[in-house]
Design a protein around this nucleic acid. Structure first.
Length: 264
DNA sequence: ATGACGGAAGTTTTCCGA
């Protein structure tokens, strides 16, 4: 089974690339972020024609998340229960999980999330990011208790450490790299989650986002801010995790690349 | 120090992203 996450920076613009990518990478579940469209504009028919069912949660202009899947979703939740939010940032669903060898059929809980950007430490948007992170953690803790097989994936807008940053000195304490943000990321890990990418050997300077400006992709000046966190039970089944830079080489790319995890 | 690029809204310039 494969699951992936991709911030597409406008699904209207990127739909052909998403369909091309799915044709080449027929993952079981794909979480999308930054749809930047209202729900009535979601291209459900084109996605169904590609063999995927979809759950989506959009809004005008900004944000918006979706889950595309080979099998139907159940128990869909939009945004964080108990955390009032007028932005569409979270969508969760449950899917059938193929039984492990000799085991019984199971289910997998998938949470796709577009974490707040935060703009600048000390700003109102940064404060909102901190409150959102607290609300998310409280809810994910309860979800983990209910669902041993859990994946939390999306655009976290946080780096774990210097390895995730092309210029850790120049970008020290700037947005995505502050100690406050990283505290919250480690707190998610402390719930019993694991950073899929670091379970496996990776190329040096592996990033998932590059600025559109200044030839940042060509110079590999990026950050790793898109993550797939898996629960203990799924860590035992994880066999690979990769960042696919191929779509970032398209003519009109998203600024993010997809991240893919493989489970046995 | 600033802006660079890209998208949306919407109409010419502004907000926002990361």
């Amino acid at each position: 089974m494969q699951l992936a996450t991709w911030n597409v920076n406008s699904l209207s613009v990127r739909l052909p690339q998403v369909l091309d990518w799915l044709a080449a990478n027929p993952v079981d579940v794909l979480a999308l972020q930054e749809l930047k469209m209202t729900d009535d504009k979601f291209p459900a028919a084109a996605i169904a024609a590609a063999g995927y069912s979809a759950q989506w949660f959009g809004q005008k202009t900004y944000n918006g998340v979706a889950l595309l899947s080979r099998t139907p979703a159940s128990d869909v939740v939009k945004n964080i229960p108990g955390f009032a939010d007028d932005m569409s940032r979270v969508i969760a669903a449950t899917y059938a999980l193929p039984a492990a060898p000799g085991g019984a059929a199971q289910s997998i809980r998938v949470i796709g999330a577009y974490f707040p950007n935060g703009q600048e430490p000390g700003s109102d948007k940064f404060e909102y990011k901190m409150e959102w992170l607290k609300g998310l953690r409280q809810w994910v803790q309860a979800e983990l208790a209910a669902h041993p097989n859990l994946v939390l994936m999306g655009d976290y807008n946080i780096t774990f450490d210097d390895l995730d940053v092309w210029d850790p000195v120049g970008l020290k304490d700037t947005i995505h790299c502050t100690e406050e943000e990283r505290y919250h990321l480690r707190a998610l890990i402390a719930l019993g989650l694991h950073d899929s990418l670091r379970l496996f050997a990776q190329p040096e300077k592996s990033y998932s986002w590059w600025d559109y400006r200044d030839f940042a992709f060509r110079r590999n000046r990026g950050m790793r801010i898109d993550h797939i966190l898996v629960s203990d039970a799924l860590k035992a089944r994880a066999t690979a995790c990769t960042i696919d830079k191929t779509p970032r080489k398209n003519e009109r790319p998203s600024d993010h690349a997809p991240v893919v995890v493989t489970l046995s």
